[in-house]
Computed example of a mutant assay.
Amino acid sequence: MRGRRVLASVASAVIAATVLSGCTATALQSQYENGDNKGYISGTGVTEIKPADRKEAVPFSGKTEEGSTFSTAAHAGDVIVVNFWYAGCPPCRVEAKTLQKLSTQYAGKGVDFVGVNTRDDAASAKSFDTTFGVTYPSILDAQKGAVQLAFSGTYRPNATPTTIILDKQGRVAARIEGPINDQPSTVSTLIDSALAEGRS
């Protein structure tokens, strides 16, 4: 009789654990079940850092999909918009045209756009550029991860896509997690704010 009670208790515990685990499904599991961007989680949110609270400059450089080198040193004094992405990322594909439109809008105004491709080879990155009409360069960071490491401090890219705006001194002025197409005016405002700094 006692053995039956023990078995019944164990069975109840197993059932309870199963039910609880079902109630605490991860975001990834929920997306899979719903069919929304299966296997993928995107962040969301905007963080703006006041000039007085900004950390040191974030210097970086790397080879682009075209074989040239992009370095922050070559763009000193400009505002730099850094977008972390990869070709198979659904939100990255959605925001690509908005980023391209912004890069065209700010061309010749002291604002430079650069992508940081975190997973792809040159051929995949070029194919993405052709498909979405992207004309600004992207650093291929999949093998070494040097650019991702450069941003490994407080305002690191926690999700893909993430867009980081560097001020004229190369410091992180803002971070936008998630696709920017949902908030292009916010991005423009952040860029304009960084551009206006230091003007009399």
Rank of each mutant, 00 (worst) to 15 (best):
V6S: 07
V6E: 01
L7W: 05
L7S: 02
A8K: 08
A8H: 10
A8Q: 07
V10T: 03
V10K: 06
A11R: 10
S12A: 11
A13R: 01
I15Q: 10
I15L: 09
A16S: 13
A16V: 14
A17M: 14
A17P: 12
T18E: 08
V19Y: 11
V19K: 06
V19G: 04
A25P: 10
T26V: 00
Q29I: 02
Y32C: 12
E33P: 12
N34Y: 08
N37W: 06
N37C: 08
G39P: 07
G39I: 09
I41C: 04
T47D: 05
E48S: 14
I49K: 01
P51Y: 12
D53W: 08
R54G: 02
E56P: 02
A57S: 07
E65P: 09
E66P: 00
G67N: 09
F70P: 04
F70I: 04
S71R: 09
A73K: 13
A74I: 04
A74P: 15
G77W: 07
N83A: 12
N83L: 04
F84N: 14
F84H: 11
W85L: 03
Y86F: 15
C89I: 12
C89W: 05
P90F: 01
V94G: 09
E95D: 08
K97N: 03
T98D: 14
T98I: 03
L99F: 02
K101A: 15
T104Y: 11
Q105M: 15
Y106T: 02
A107G: 11
G108T: 13
G108F: 01
K109S: 10
K109F: 03
D112L: 04
V114S: 07
G115A: 03
V116N: 06
A123K: 13
S124Y: 07
S127I: 05
S127R: 15
D129N: 13
D129F: 02
T130P: 00
T130N: 05
F132N: 13
Y136D: 00
I139A: 05
I139L: 01
L140K: 10
L140A: 03
L140N: 05
L140V: 00
G145E: 03
G145N: 10
L149T: 14
L149I: 06
R156Q: 08
P157F: 02
I164L: 08
I165Q: 07
K168S: 07
K168D: 03
Q169L: 14
V172C: 04
A174W: 01
R175G: 02
P179M: 07
I180L: 14
P184Q: 02
T186K: 14
T186Y: 09
V187S: 02
L190T: 09
D192Q: 13
A196F: 00
G198S: 11
G198C: 07
S200F: 15
